[in-house]
Design a protein around this nucleic acid. Structure first.
Lengths: 358, 358
DNA sequence: GTGAAAGCGCTAACAC
DNA sequence: GTGTTAGCGCTTTCAC
């Protein structure tokens, strides 16, 4: 049944027969190789047109390259990832390479990324760019042993694969300092589930969490630490934030691990009626929207995606030493943290009567 | 140079040698085929593990299916398209099939979609789901002659390919009636460039534009018709809307062809200080956000994506009659059109002194 | 300038 | 139960 599909798909053999030449001759025409008479080239190209022939990349790839770059991505709903894609796509323009994207199943915990990455490799891509903070380094290195790999957002340094990563510690630190400078003392952190923030794992969210904890401790606010967690999605963040606000003495500020979560938190805050500052991370388009105006951290996803692809092409081209590139993020202070108010005199918050529950 | 990559990639031959059996034997183990002794199966599986072997889908596909579904998509930045993807992805869960996405270069006018679609087919996908309103029907039918195709958002009916499409005429009509019922007389339409809305082309945006024109005419507002255009992107919509507002007598309402454009228009409206209603189309997540609260039209992208994939799998399974499915959209009235105000007494707008410039 | 032949990694019929 | 064999569509020497 599934076999039905190939009927009608012309092969190089069909073209050769139609043009009255050998398969090799057709191949040469296709590749603009040396040694083809104009007359033959004509006959062949006409035959190709007539038969609507297209060479199969797979068959071609069996000998050489497939000229295909695989991009593995979790969660298309997160606009930051989309920025990465835009950059990658741009870097491949005017290139022989084609971009192919494989979605990793979201919320899949353990297997997140493995399946999609394998799917890509099984399909003969010449190289892979991936956003898979949770995949084990050992596994990745085994992959990188035969297929060029560039990882996005991984802080581990491997000799086998390259990486492009934002300085999450610096970025999260700048957010925290901003909030603390504004006078906030009860700052909560909204992040993803534990398995994404395992201490020492070096995932972006682990580092942001650590920066949060460190900054709180440094500012003598260690007792006010409060970490809320939720799965990906604006709705989930909304629910988690709502819970945070409902419970006893609410925070005066929430630092969300990324903008999508921040947007959800902002919604919960708006509904609650409380005057609570919210900050995010990534500077998605929406963050700059006037009615939202979210304080956040800009990291150029386009640039990161573009660099990743450039590095991958170099790898494919023969480079063997690993390259690790760190992008410096930048705080974008907006009104969601009452910065405007703060400008006219330091914001004064009454000290918490009781140390704020952990 | 590019040849370097394959070294290290174990083949079935390597496994056979390591296990001391024939290639066919390994193949049988891989496919759980009949006629393998437990002892041999053991030796083979160990060899596979040791060599870190993975069968190449491409080589496999040369005989049968690749178990790969291609999804062609323009513009990842548009959240509605992302919803389609989520649905498609969900439909493939628990299936042998893998989803592979190819981005069509945006703003590419003429060639939009062709390249990506070809890239997919060249890579041996078993079937294709595509969002390519601008590709010619003739070309698509030639494609569909050998590869199952399901189109999203095309109103043309072909005997060769299936389609899933929202009823854009009805959806746009409901928005327009809503605006007119609210008392608006100067309603502008913000849509994409001409080549996307060619009359009679049957693209979603052509139909929405036609519905806009028809509704205006029916309501006796034909003289107030005003169509602004911009390329994809919130920023471009912002600029176009700003121009619309700056110029003489501004509209009292803007119907944007989709939510991303509407969001941009909303931003321009907010900055202008005018009290202007804005409506969009697609009901992206953001539209429901309290601080945005955009009146729009809900069409379940997830459902559309899911149905498309289901239909494609049927096609691959052997179905030959074409299926065309129309999804009924639903108006979601929110505050961006001052519906709240309207509830307490009909909104009264002073009639335009001069018929509003075309 | 052109074509024959071998081989890329895998599957499926068919012998053994 | 196991191995031999003949392709799948294409590229690439290497003779002619």
């Amino acid at each position: 049944m599934t076999e039905a599909r190939r009927q009608g798909q012309a092969t190089i053999e069909d073209v050769a027969r139609a043009a009255g030449v050998s398969r090799a001759a057709v191949s040469k025409v296709l590749r603009n190789a040396y040694g083809v008479s104009p007359a033959m080239r004509d006959r062949v190209t006409t035959a190709i047109e007539e038969l609507n022939y297209r060479p199969r990349v797979a068959a071609r790839a069996m000998r050489g390259a497939s000229f295909t770059i695989g991009f593995e991505l979790p969660d298309f709903a997160n606009p930051f990832f989309t920025r990465l894609l835009a950059g990658a796509s741009a870097a491949l323009r005017d290139t022989r390479y084609q971009l192919i994207i494989a979605p990793a199943e979201p919320d899949a915990e353990e297997q997140e990324g493995y399946r999609a990455l394998e799917a890509l490799v099984d399909r003969q891509v010449d190289g892979v760019v991936a956003v898979s903070p949770l995949v084990s380094q050992e596994w990745l290195e085994r992959l990188a042993a035969h297929t060029p790999v560039v990882m996005l957002g991984r802080h581990d340094r491997s000799a086998r694969y390259d990486s492009v990563v934002g300085d999450d510690t610096a970025g999260a630190g700048s957010v925290m300092r901003h909030l603390i400078d504004l006078g906030h003392e009860r700052i909560a952190h909204l992040t993803r589930p534990e398995y994404v923030t395992v201490p020492g794992s070096g995932t972006p969210h682990a580092l942001r969490l650590e920066a949060y904890l460190d900054c709180m401790a440094e500012a003598g606010l260690g007792d006010n630490v409060r970490v809320a967690r939720c799965q990906e999605g604006e709705g989930r963040a909304y629910a988690a934030a709502a819970e945070l606000l409902a419970d006893g003495e609410p925070p005066t500020a929430i630092f969300a691990a990324h903008d999508e979560l921040a947007i959800g938190a902002l919604r919960a805050v708006a509904e609650s009626g409380h005057d609570i500052s919210v900050a995010g991370y990534d500077n998605i388009l929406l963050a700059g929207y006037p009615r939202i105006s979210l304080t956040t951290v800009e990291q150029s996803g386009e640039q990161m995606g573009e660099r990743a692809v450039e590095m991958l092409l170099q790898r494919i081209g023969g480079r063997t030493e690993a390259v690790h590139e760190v992008i410096t993020p930048e705080l974008v202070a907006r009104e969601s943290t009452r910065e405007a108010k703060a400008r006219r005199g330091r914001l004064r918050l009454a000290p918490a009567a009781v140390p704020w529950r952990r």
